[in-house]
Deep mutational scan, measured.
Amino acid sequence: SKNWSEDDLQLLIKAVNLFPAGTNSRWEVIANYMNIHSSSGVKRTAKDVIGKA
């Protein structure tokens, strides 16, 4: 699996709070948010995000 930096983990926590349970396509939305805002340049999929959340 791809390494997660501390910044990416913080971003994931922020995204999970921004897009609560019940959000349509929640994990796709979170992955997309991370891909836009992450400084690491690593592209995450919904599966990556679910695996780490």
Rank of each mutant, 00 (worst) to 15 (best):
E6Y: 08
S39P: 13
D7Q: 14
L11F: 05
S40P: 04
F19M: 04
W27K: 02
L12K: 00
Y33I: 00
L18R: 09
K52A: 13
Y33M: 01
A46Q: 11
L18C: 08
N17Y: 08
S40C: 08
L12F: 11
K47V: 11
N35L: 00
N3P: 09
N32T: 10
A31W: 01
A53F: 03
A31E: 01
S1M: 05
K47Q: 14
K47F: 08
S5Y: 02
M34R: 00
F19R: 01
N32G: 08
K14E: 11
S25M: 13
G51P: 08
N17E: 14
I50Q: 13
G41W: 03
L12M: 08
L9H: 11
Y33T: 01
F19C: 04
W27D: 05
K43A: 10
L18G: 04
V16G: 07
G22Q: 06
L12A: 03
S39T: 15
G22F: 04
S5D: 03
W4G: 01
R26L: 00
L12E: 00
S5C: 06
I30H: 00
V49A: 08
K43C: 12
Q10E: 12
G22W: 06
F19Y: 09
R26M: 00
A46D: 12
L18Q: 05
L9Q: 15
I36D: 14
S25V: 06
L12N: 01
S1W: 02
L18T: 12
V49W: 02
N17H: 09
N24R: 12
T23E: 06
S39C: 11
P20Y: 01
K47Y: 08
K52E: 13
R26N: 02
A21F: 11
S25Q: 07
S38K: 04
K43W: 07
L9P: 02
D7H: 07
K47H: 09
W4L: 07
V49Q: 02
G51V: 09
N35P: 00
V29S: 14
N32E: 14
S39K: 11
I13S: 15
K14L: 06
N35W: 01
V29P: 02
H37R: 09
I30Y: 01
K14A: 13
A15K: 00
K14Y: 08
A15R: 00
N24F: 11
A53D: 11
K43P: 08
A31D: 01
K14F: 13
I13Q: 15
G22M: 05
W4N: 02
D48L: 01
S40R: 07
A15V: 04
R26E: 04
P20D: 10
I50S: 12
I13D: 15
L18D: 06
A21L: 11
S25R: 14
K52I: 11
D8P: 00
M34K: 00
G51N: 14
I13W: 14
K47M: 10
K52S: 07
Q10R: 08
D8R: 05
N17A: 11
T23L: 08
N24V: 12
